[in-house]
Structure formats: structure tokens, C-alpha cells
Simulated assay, not measured.
Amino acid sequence: WTKEEYQKFAEEMMDKPISYYAFQMLYWTGIREGELLALTPADFDFERGTVKISKTYQRLKGKDVITSPKTKKSNRTIQMPDFLCEEMQEFFKMQYGLKKKDRIFTINKSYLHREMDRGAEAAGVKRIRIHDLRHSHISLLIDMGFSAVAIADRVGHESIEITYRYAHLFPSKQKEMASKLDDLNKGA
């Protein structure tokens, strides 16, 4: 989704705080679904504005299981935008008796999928997969001009080659680069 499509969707999610804040985290940080569902208050450092990704949630044989993330590079600390820090602090205040090691989002993947359907339909935007929010985040960062190396580091890609799979999104920058090189050559 473009930022505008996401914002239309997010507006429709505001009636259910757990859904709204879950999708905010997914879109604005680019974390994976399992990483989101494993988050605890202990993972957040609001003074520094960061969230630490060090585990993932799965449901195996009817049991909630917390495991190590997908890859070594998936262990990372993500800098959150200020507005997201404020929103997550608000969300924490809404939770009754939330302890440091409690899962924040006590929902499952099928709940998120149903909410994605509901929100996309209500917002009048195309239905995308939950994982596509991660792709939307990466696309947004590419469009903002961040390097593939910086993006790979943020989203926990094991190799930069994975980030380069988004290369089709970089061409929009090619014209801008050529134009700046032109200006530089002209001494502008």
C-alpha cells in the first residue's frame, strides 16, 4: 500500500484499539507478524524510542510458542518514530495489569487476517497480505531515499540481496540521481 492507502485503512481500525496499534506497529516499523505477536512491554524503551526484536510467536500443535527470530539479523533494535512511541505508550496505559514479560498483542494471526479484510473493505483499498505491510514499509523507505543497506538493517534482512528484490522500486530514484549528477556537473 501507499502511505495514503495505509492511512485510510488505519482510520477504519481505530474502533478496535488492539487492531489499530498492531497494524501501526506492522506498517511503521516493518516487523514481521510473528515478531509483533511476541512483543512484551520489556521490549520497548520509550526513553530511547526503540523496540527490540528478539523473538517470534507461533502457534504449534495448539500451543503458543515463543522462539528465536527467523534469522540472526532478525535480532535487532528498531528506532520508532516519535508518534508511534506516544501511541504505544497510550496503548500500554489502556492495558490492565500488563506486566513486563506479558505479550502485548494477545491475538492470533487469524484475528489479524479478519481485521485486515474488515479494514480494507471499509477503507475501499485493495486487500493485501499482512506480510505486505512489511513490503509497504520497505517501499516507503526506498521512496524516502534510504539506502538498501540501511533498510536491510532496519527490517532484519539476512543479506542485502533480499532488500534488492525491491529494486523495481528504486528506478523512481534513478531520474532524481541523474538530475542531481547533472546539477553537480554544471556546478549548480
Rank of each mutant, 00 (worst) to 15 (best):
K126P: 07
K101Y: 08
R129T: 12
D102E: 03
K99L: 15
S110D: 06
V125C: 04
S110Y: 05
Y111T: 06
E121D: 09
M94D: 01
M116W: 07
L141C: 15
H137P: 02
R134H: 05
S110K: 04
D132P: 05
I138R: 07
K101L: 14
Q95K: 15
G119V: 09
A122I: 01
E90T: 12
L140W: 07
L112T: 03
D117S: 04
K126F: 10
H135A: 07
I107M: 08
I130E: 14
V125I: 06
A120D: 10
K100V: 14
F105C: 13
K126I: 01
K126A: 14
K99N: 07
I107Q: 00
L141Q: 14
A120Y: 11
H137M: 02
E90M: 15
Q95H: 12
L112R: 00
A122G: 03
A123K: 11
R134F: 08
G97Q: 13
R134V: 01
I104D: 01
I138K: 08
D102L: 03
Y111M: 13
H131Y: 14
N108W: 05
R134Q: 03
S136L: 10
G97L: 12
K100S: 15
G97T: 07
Y111Q: 09
D132R: 01
K109A: 03
M94F: 04
K100M: 15
R103Q: 13
E121G: 02
V125E: 05
F91V: 11
R127E: 08
L112F: 00
I128S: 02
R114Q: 08
M116P: 07
K93D: 14
R127L: 12
I130G: 14
K101C: 06
L98D: 05
V125L: 01
A122Q: 10
K93H: 07
A122H: 04
F105M: 05
L140C: 03
T106A: 12
D117I: 11
K99H: 11
L133H: 06
L141F: 11
R134N: 03
R129G: 04
L140M: 10
V125F: 02
F91E: 15
H131I: 04
R134I: 05
S139L: 12
I128M: 09
K101G: 09
M116E: 00
L133K: 01
M94C: 05
F91S: 13
S110G: 05
H113N: 15
L140R: 02
Y96M: 09
L140K: 02
L98M: 09
G124W: 00
M116N: 07
L133W: 01
R127H: 15
S139P: 08
H131P: 10
D117E: 14
K101M: 14
D117H: 09
S110C: 04
A122E: 09
F92L: 08
E115Q: 13
F92M: 14
S139V: 15
K93I: 08
Q95D: 04
S139R: 11
N108L: 12
K100F: 13
I138W: 13
S136E: 06
R127S: 08
H137E: 07
K100R: 13
Q95M: 14
S139C: 15
Q89L: 09
